[in-house]
Amino acid sequence: MSQSKNYEQEPSSNRLVASMAIAGFISGVIIIAIYLATFNTIKDNKARELRQAVFKVLPNVSYMQKLYFENNTLVIAKSDGMDDDMIFAGYDKQGKFIGYAIQGKGAGFQDTIHLLFGYLPEKQLMTGMAILESRETPGLGDKIFKDMHFVGEFVNHLMKQAIKAVKKGTKSHDYEIDAITGATISSKAVVRLMNAAFNRWSPKLSPLGQEPVFQMSKQTQGSLDSSQIQPESPNIQIGK
């Protein structure tokens, strides 16, 4: 008798399923709501970060063309966002080609490092680099973007041969750069990613000094479209 009473007190499986389903549904609605509410801000943040980085590593550029390498040739990337296989061609105000911003991505000390560097094919010159994403140790590995000496090593660096990171103070060749004391692995990772990205892209780019040729007529040039990146507020930059 008492046993059957106990069984009656147990909630029915329908009730268990219903409570899980209701909780899951409410949770789902909340999660989707917050995702949609923050989606544009997050997208803008990422786009702004990339825009700033692209124009930082390649100075004197007034707009960038997003390009892909497909079927042995460069084609215009029409996508809104950006991905790892993209390369950016920079032009000045008159529409004259200046150089490329090239991405590199790979393992760092703790997690993936995603970086960007500017390259002038005409002079074989690296114009600067920026770290887009990294989770290197705070205080040590994060010096790859906080240590201005290290970042400065990649400004006007001649790319005649692969870069090599050496212990600070022992630099004896042009292709060598000072590694960060205490963050040798992160410094070497940055250099390795740059060399890999450079080796990947340089054979695909147009010969020395020539403008990149891509498969679409350049009628879109100068006009705002999703395949191009404009600096955030060109008026302020030029005016001041």
Binding site: P11, R15, L16, S19, M20, A23, G24, I26, S27, I30, I31, I34, Y35, A37, T38, T41, I42, N45
Partner: peptide, 26 residues
Amino acid sequence: PKQVRISLYIIIIATFVTVVDYSLLA
């Protein structure tokens, strides 16, 4: 119901965590 309480707690906690995650990211 106490039979499914742990999973319900986790659903509630996970929802709040997702809200925090996206808010911080934005």
